[in-house]
Write a protein that binds this DNA or RNA. Sequence first.
DNA 1: CGTGGGTTTGATGACGGTCAAGCCTAGTGG
DNA 2: CCACTAGGCTTGACCGTCATCAAACCCACG
Lengths: 241, 241
Amino acid sequence: MQNTALGRKLGAFVALSAPEISALESLHKRRRTFVAGRDLVHQGQSEQAAYILASGWAVSYKIMEDGQRQIVDFQIPGDFLGLRSVLFHLSDHSVEPVTNIDVTEILLPDLLDAFSRTPRLAMAILWAASRDEAMVVEHLVGIGRREATERMAHFLLELGARLALVGMGSKAGFDCPLTQYHLADALGLSAVHTNRVLRKLREWGMLTFRSGTVRFDDYDRLAEFAKFDPTYLDQTGPLLK
Amino acid sequence: MQNTALGRKLGAFVALSAPEISALESLHKRRRTFVAGRDLVHQGQSEQAAYILASGWAVSYKIMEDGQRQIVDFQIPGDFLGLRSVLFHLSDHSVEPVTNIDVTEILLPDLLDAFSRTPRLAMAILWAASRDEAMVVEHLVGIGRREATERMAHFLLELGARLALVGMGSKAGFDCPLTQYHLADALGLSAVHTNRVLRKLREWGMLTFRSGTVRFDDYDRLAEFAKFDPTYLDQTGPLLK
DNA sequence: CGTGGGTTTGATGACGGTCAAGCCTAGTGG
DNA sequence: CCACTAGGCTTGACCGTCATCAAACCCACG
């Protein structure tokens, strides 16, 4: 069970029993692979599938009429991709792999089947969806009320914390396949300003973003500067025993 | 069932059967009332309840260390209040009634019980949570990429569409208990700029925000100006028959 | 060794914040 | 019945953060 990143994540909310684990495993059929850059969920289209990300990074975003794009969130192993797109008539967003990725596909009937097998798993999935929403909410707060430098710091700290939960990062930093354009589109900034902000953080000795890695040069000072409080990630252990 | 706003809303996703309706009704016990301005969900506290809003308006928001506040969304009849706060160890946000409100309280065991009675209701609630997330996502896009005037127009159009679904609004407008301070905190603007933006929209003959009402003076032109596409509200009828 | 994606830096200006003040209206108390 | 108040709205002046435009650099890759 702990072999899947999703299992590990859900374990942070419910202590899963054997039948629940098997119901969860039954969702992990149909493995697929997608190459970097080719969308796997398409905004505005119907009958999209959802996926659980097994390895690699993805990005979910919305495109506006004038071609601007707003990145909603990045997904890392254990995260759902396009869950809303199976529940809605038309997908409200797109998902693109940042790297090559491995996923398992989930269709609506699979989900319904799993729900009827165990209500606690349904609850766990509702929790996971709510956690995603909490991250979007925090992101909203960042864009609405934090200035650029603090926003950047906060965002990278969040990513670090999420990656740590699945063993892909620590307070020292993490491997990061994103470009400055990704960060700009996520944070509502221009690429130019993104670059300036990163320079500041580097010059201040707080973090270094370069060539595929994020290094926290002074984690504590960075966290204080960004007022990072990871409560909203709710990673403190099972609530439902 | 159509007597509850929530039932009406969920009916937009699943065609509910008799047992599902009764499971839903079993969630509508414990009626309570809260007065305007007194928070009913508290950011940072544990063991919060969730509620279904029966009448009145509420607002969910996050407070930052420096006292700034970011409004995440407004809630109208049929919406959940504080759903994340029952699923998380600590609530990541607060909820305040804008007007006096009537609600029904929901505890975690109620939800688990309903889920075990009918998986389709669980699915419907997952859909409702996802729809909330979709609204937050659209809000994020607005703050990240739309300039102030367009953002305001889009936001008020969304509110209008949501209210229309529960019979509280139309393309002519709706009654609106919000102040310009509310709008400012929701849209990531200052109150001063909010006022200027509203003036522009009024002078352009698109909408009038005044003394408790929003009037769409030219709905079509406004919708075009804001590039309002309500797809993400997913209000087009049951997907699960 | 040329090309293109990603990064870096400078110059300029707009959108929206802050500060400050005044106005308008509903509700309260003398 | 009339101050008086407080919350909400409106407007002006000024300024800062961040966008835009432009150009150059760096490096991996074909």
